[in-house]
């Protein structure tokens, strides 16, 4: 199964990655080839197979609910491209053209 230009554009939008026109064509071709390859999984009958996300038995890990040392606000904000004294600074959220 191939992937069309329009699907690449949709996936790029979902992925929040801006693509140039020529990149859409290239990724459509490359992703189509990869998807054709992974389609071989359909040769396998997996009707009675449970999906496996973790091969080792894992359970929720809990700890006592007591305060612990954590990063200071300055350390946590230290790599932010834009910040205020106590928070991350983001561009205007509303009125961005409705592309969300």
């Amino acid at each position: 199964m191939g992937i069309q230009r329009s699907e690449v554009e949709k996936v790029a939008k979902l992925s929040r990655i801006a693509l140039r026109d020529d990149q859409v064509d290239l990724f459509a071709e490359q992703l189509s080839r990869i998807l054709n390859y992974v389609d071989q999984l359909n040769q396998l009958d997996t009707a009675d197979v449970e999906p496996l996300s973790h091969a080792l038995p894992v359970a929720n890990v809990f700890r006592e609910d007591v305060p612990q040392a954590s990063l200071t606000a300055d350390a946590a904000l230290g790599n932010a491209p834009a910040r205020t004294a106590a928070g991350f600074k983001v561009p205007r959220v509303l009125d961005d053209g409705g592309s969300a």
């Binding site: 939008k13 992925s15 929040r16 990655i17 801006a18 790599n79 932010a80 491209p81 834009a82 991350f88 983001v90 561009p91 205007r92 959220v93 009125d95 961005d96 053209g97 592309s99 969300a100």
Partner: peptide
């Protein structure tokens, strides 16, 4: 937002995400 590159030119939040990435 939290760390890493942010595009300098953008038209709002979602466009900033897409261009930065």
């Amino acid at each position: 937002v939290h760390y890493g590159r942010r595009a300098s030119e953008h038209a709002g939040l979602v466009d900033m995400y897409s261009r930065s990435r």
